[in-house]
Simulated scan of single mutants.
Amino acid sequence: MVPRFISAHMVADRAGVSRSAVSRAFTPGASIAPETREKVMQAAAELGYQVNDLARGLLANRSRLVGLVASDPASPFRTQQIAALSRRLVERGSVPVLIPTGTGEEQVSAAHSTLLRYRAEATIVLSGMPSTSLVELAQRNGQPLIVVGRTEHGPDHIRVDNVRAAQVAVEVFVARGMRKLGFVTSSVRSPNLIEREEAFVSAAASHGLNVRIQRAGYTDYDGGQVAASLLLGTGDAVEAVFCVNDLMAFGLMDYARDVLNLSIPRDLSVIGFDGVPASRWGAYRLTTFHQDEEVLAHEIIRVLDQRQADPKARPIVSVLDVPLIYRGSVRPLRGEA
Rank of each mutant, 00 (worst) to 15 (best):
A83R: 12
I146T: 00
V188E: 08
D156W: 14
G224H: 14
A83S: 11
L68W: 03
R257I: 13
Q306M: 03
D310W: 04
V226I: 15
G233I: 14
V244L: 09
L247R: 15
R266N: 06
L286N: 02
V295K: 03
V276G: 04
E293N: 00
D321F: 00
I99Q: 04
G142A: 07
L230A: 11
E152S: 13
A30F: 05
Q225M: 13
T151Q: 11
S190P: 03
L181F: 11
H157W: 12
E106S: 14
V172L: 05
A15P: 01
G128F: 10
L268A: 06
T79D: 00
V184W: 01
Q107N: 03
P96L: 00
A205D: 13
A175V: 05
A169T: 02
A43Q: 02
N261P: 14
D292V: 07
H207Y: 15
A169L: 04
V163Q: 01
R302T: 05
Q107H: 10
A166C: 05
A256V: 07
D53G: 00
P155S: 09
A216H: 07
E35F: 06
D274T: 06
G154D: 02
R140C: 09
V211P: 12
R78M: 05
R87T: 15
T132K: 11
A74P: 06
R302I: 08
L252K: 03
T114R: 06
I264Q: 07
D222N: 13
G328T: 09
E195L: 07
H153I: 13
D236H: 15
V108G: 03
H153W: 14
D267N: 04
V40A: 01
A205K: 12
D246A: 09
A256F: 08
T123F: 00
P73K: 05
V2I: 13
P144W: 00
P73Q: 04
R189Q: 07
L89R: 05
A203G: 14
A175R: 08
S127W: 08
N141F: 11
G182F: 01
F242L: 08
R307P: 02
N162F: 09
D305E: 09
Q308G: 01
H153E: 15
Y218L: 15
S186G: 02
R56G: 11
A8Q: 06
Y218C: 11
T103Q: 09
R189S: 01
D220L: 12
S279F: 10
L54T: 01
L137C: 12
Y218F: 12
V184I: 04
I264M: 07
A227R: 10
Q50G: 00
A84C: 10
R150H: 08
Q50I: 02
G208H: 15
R78W: 02
R176A: 04
T123A: 02
G57H: 01
D258F: 15
T219I: 14
I82P: 02
R14A: 08
R87Q: 13
R37C: 11
